[in-house]
């Protein structure tokens, strides 16, 4: 039988009128929204932001880009994830690695694709 904490056979369950659904992580992360995309991280360059290789990011194309936010960016034919910076009236991708210069997110082949709003790590 499919026992849920309420449907006991002998003594009526005191919890019967107070059962709730289990926590639904997919609903919490709102993954069914049409603007949300899961994105897998490659590389550890964002370790200083607490983002590691293999992490799953929830990227939301509806979330407005802002200085300091982490975003998925399409730049010169590659897919990058990094920290946004707004300087000199334009967007930059700041590197998580010390000593690496930021790159400008400009030109035909540059797009802030989605802003990262959450993170899932299945192995800690």
């Amino acid at each position: 039988m499919n026992y849920n904490g309420g449907n006991t056979t002998g003594f009526a369950s005191p919890a019967g009128d107070n059962l709730e659904g289990r926590i639904d992580l997919a609903a919490m992360l709102d993954l069914s929204r049409p603007s949300r995309y899961p994105v897998r991280v490659a590389g550890d360059a964002l370790a200083s932001r607490g983002i590691f290789a293999g992490d799953i990011l929830i990227a939301d194309a509806a979330s407005p880009p802002a200085h300091g936010k982490v975003a998925v960016v399409m730049l010169n034919g590659t897919v990058l994830v990094g920290q946004l910076a707004y300087r000199q009236q334009q967007w930059w991708l700041a590197s998580g690695t010390q000593g690496t210069a930021p790159v400008a997110v400009t030109g035909d082949d540059a797009e802030i694709w989605a802003v990262v709003t959450g993170l899932i790590r299945t192995q800690v």
Binding site: P38, G43, I51, L57, V72, T78, V79, L80
Partner: peptide
């Protein structure tokens, strides 16, 4: 299958 298979999602290189 970027959006329907957990093994095949979009991969972004950390910068």
């Amino acid at each position: 299958r970027y959006t329907t298979s957990a093994e095949e999602m979009l991969v972004a290189q950390a910068f």
